[in-house]
Simulated assay, not measured.
Amino acid sequence: MEVVTLEVPALGNRTHLVHDGSRALVVDPPRDVSDVERVAEQAQVEIAAVADTHVHNDYVSGALALARRHGADYLLAADEPVEFERLGVRGGDVVPVGRLDVSVLATPGHTRHHQAFLVRSHDELDRPGALFSGGSLLRGTVGRTDLVDERLTAELAGRQWASARLLGALDPATTLHPTHGFGSFCAGATTAATGAGGTIGDERVANPALTTDRDRFVAELVAGYGPYPRYYPHMAPLNRAGSAGPAPGRPGPSPPPR
């Protein structure tokens, strides 16, 4: 299993492509998927599945269009109200992608129906694997909880704490691959952790969600929120409608050699 991370500095986010040498899963792609397709082509892998950890509030997702371009499954929480066909998944589901198993973990908090994806090879299910945590557990912090509905901010912050604890209970050697960070307004706080690497074990030591009791964590997280860009409220409706149009990019890469 190999993970390729693509940084999107303009959004303060990262997109991830994980593959088994033949078939790949793409997690949280931006609307412009050119770099994603370039990386897939270089690795000579087929994009077999695309996933959004949540309906994004900070950018237009390229996931639906990318999945359609490649005839791939589009994974999104089954409970999310959207206006298009997708492969609705729930916590506890396991989706095969080539020789990879994609385990779905329900991690509400950043949004109501947020999910994380734990990916392991079929023949290494006893190994730690790679966790794609979206806007749930970030490096040194968590995703903010006031973007869905300000009235739900504190409630979602409590659920974010519980979700972080769920992820923090994974094998400490599990590698952590969040979407938000390094400048994203979706991050609940600014941290010194800016690199793409890291493990669950690292977060157990440094992440307040894993070192602070629930009530104190919720109070401090909510008190630390600052303003966010004016365009944010328009993003989730666009993503729910699937109305972004065709994803920019070249024609999809040729299938890998068999």
Rank of each mutant, 00 (worst) to 15 (best):
G245H: 05
V142E: 01
P227K: 05
V119P: 08
F217A: 09
L76V: 15
L170Y: 01
A164V: 06
V218G: 07
P257D: 15
V148P: 08
E83Y: 12
R112Y: 12
L75E: 00
A192Q: 14
H70P: 03
C186L: 10
S243P: 06
G140P: 03
V218L: 08
P108K: 07
V142R: 02
P81R: 10
A223K: 08
G98W: 03
H70N: 15
E2Y: 01
S133T: 07
G252E: 09
E220S: 14
R69N: 13
L156S: 02
I47E: 00
L152V: 08
D35S: 15
R204K: 10
L125I: 10
W161M: 05
A116E: 00
G201W: 08
S121I: 03
D149P: 08
A173W: 04
R112C: 10
G168P: 08
D28H: 12
P237D: 10
L156C: 05
A187S: 15
A223D: 14
L25E: 01
T194D: 14
L17I: 01
G183H: 10
D79L: 12
V148W: 09
R250Q: 14
A157D: 05
L76N: 06
Y74V: 02
L11N: 10
A173S: 11
A78S: 11
D171P: 03
R214Q: 14
G129V: 01
V26C: 00
E46Y: 08
A157Y: 03
V55R: 09
P81C: 05
D28K: 04
G226C: 02
D73E: 14
G226K: 07
G109T: 02
L6S: 06
A219Y: 09
G168A: 11
S243E: 12
G183R: 09
R120K: 15
S163G: 11
L11C: 06
V3A: 14
R31S: 13
R151M: 12
P29A: 01
D171E: 09
P229K: 06
L25P: 01
P255W: 00
D149K: 11
S61P: 11
P248G: 08
V55P: 05
L25T: 00
V89A: 03
S133R: 02
G92K: 03
P29E: 01
V8D: 13
A49Q: 08
V60S: 12
S184D: 13
G140Y: 00
V218I: 15
R214V: 11
G245L: 07
V95M: 00
G249D: 05
L66K: 08
S22Y: 07
S34V: 10
D52G: 05
R250A: 15
G201M: 05
P233C: 06
A244M: 05
E124K: 13
L11I: 06
A173G: 09
V97C: 00
R23A: 11
G71K: 08
P233M: 05
D215P: 10
T153A: 14
G242L: 07
G12F: 00
L138V: 01
T211I: 12
A206E: 10
S61L: 06
A106Q: 10
A236K: 12
R214E: 15
A43E: 14
D93I: 02
A106N: 10
S133G: 04
Y232C: 07
A223C: 09
T175V: 12
P248F: 06
E83T: 11
T194R: 15
T111V: 04
A43Y: 03
V102S: 03
R250D: 15
A169R: 13
A169Y: 08
V142I: 05
H177Y: 06
A162G: 12
